[in-house]
Amino acid sequence: MTALLSGARILVADDQPDAARTFCRTLRDAGAKIQHVADGQAAWDAIGSQPFDLLLIDMKMPPQEWGGLWLLEQLANARARIPALVLSGEGGKAQVIKAMRLGAADWVDKDSAAEQLHPACVNLLTEVNEAALQNAAEQLPTLLAYRFARYLRATTTDTQVSEGLHTIEAILRFASCIGMAASQPRPIPGLSMSKLRRPSMGTWRDLAFALGRQTETNATAKRIIQALAPDTPTRNAVDALVKLRNDIFHGRTAPKNTDRDTIDCLLRRFAHRTTTNLQLGLAVATSMRFDGNAYTLDALLLRGTATPQPATHHADRPVVDGTILLLDGASAPTDLTPLLASMVTPTGEVRCVQFDGVLDSTDSNGDPIVKYASGDGGDGELRNLPVPTWPAAYQWTTSS
């Protein structure tokens, strides 16, 4: 299972960079992407800006005498669940015990790290890899969880490739919708209104990757994109899967086991990164109270494939009932109107619907009218959908 290290993103926090590079050589030779930082604060900053599959944390480094413990405390307080291996030298056993209590998954003695680190990392990544898809189906926002649940039920190469491609498209769509709903509009090269009328998997890919490059894009959207395709090789892999999807659709090729394996690796990595690095959620607002100082928002949490559950959040401004909100654990809920919307079925079930393009016609003001599709696995025809307009669509496009 050493292949698990190929492409794995590992953050190494150690104030002895030469030693760290030496004992990480076998990981790098196996294809892991290693990033080194010299102290706990730098590690905390890196974790806040990009996804990692695994942390290697030296116990004795800045800040303070035991900066590794400081970093683990920050992770615990933020409820981040990135698996961590701690590196301990002589005299650090008490600190290792405390590190394990703070959530570290395992420890390696620095004196034997050159021999022990590689198998320890493989064992830990094997464990998280096996749990990643189920965790995604249970913990991610419903729009993504539903697709992961369907992917998990697929048993043949054909269905695994088909459901896997649908899941990757759902990720690209989800990130794009958040990016455009929660960011200041800015023209995306090559994006036309005709593409927004009938967006394909290729359109969502182009949108997501372009948003990932724009500095103004909402931070959560960028981190979702990074979790799927953080570097050029994985972006190339996604490009190849878009072509594969088109070739299968037009009968030019049939799914192969190698296609299935590529998709499975991408989805497991994305599932692991999002469930451990991000506090990601969606909710639909149901009511709001104002005590004269702050707003308290009652909402239904759209998580996993289960029935929406009641939750309470604080907001910095009024929110209209029925609004779909992004929850990222770091800031006030973000309004995702009109790219995501809610509806209530005749049986009283709350459903989340997602942007599926704009109509050919516009409203009386010339604004594009949004059309929606189900994204949460609900059965039956969607009726009584909201019919909002999206004036900002013109600001994202470069042509008609």
Rank of each mutant, 00 (worst) to 15 (best):
D298T: 13
D298L: 06
D264T: 03
T307F: 10
H313D: 03
A283V: 11
R269Y: 00
P318N: 04
D291W: 03
F270E: 06
L266S: 03
D291H: 11
T312E: 15
A299Y: 07
H272K: 00
A294C: 14
C265F: 07
N277M: 12
N293V: 02
G281P: 12
M288V: 09
T262S: 07
N277P: 01
L267P: 02
T312H: 10
T258P: 00
L280Q: 08
S287F: 12
A299L: 09
A306D: 04
A306L: 07
K256W: 04
T258K: 13
N277I: 05
H250D: 03
T275D: 13
R303V: 09
T286N: 12
G251I: 07
N293G: 15
T307K: 14
T258G: 01
R269C: 09
A315Q: 01
D261K: 08
R289F: 06
A299E: 03
A254H: 00
N277G: 07
F270G: 03
M288I: 12
L267K: 00
A294H: 13
A271M: 09
T258S: 14
T296S: 08
L302V: 02
P318L: 10
T276G: 08
G304Y: 04
D264I: 05
T262W: 03
G251C: 03
P318M: 10
S287P: 08
P308S: 00
H250S: 12
A294V: 13
L266K: 03
A294P: 00
T258I: 04
T286F: 07
L302F: 13
D316T: 11
M288D: 06
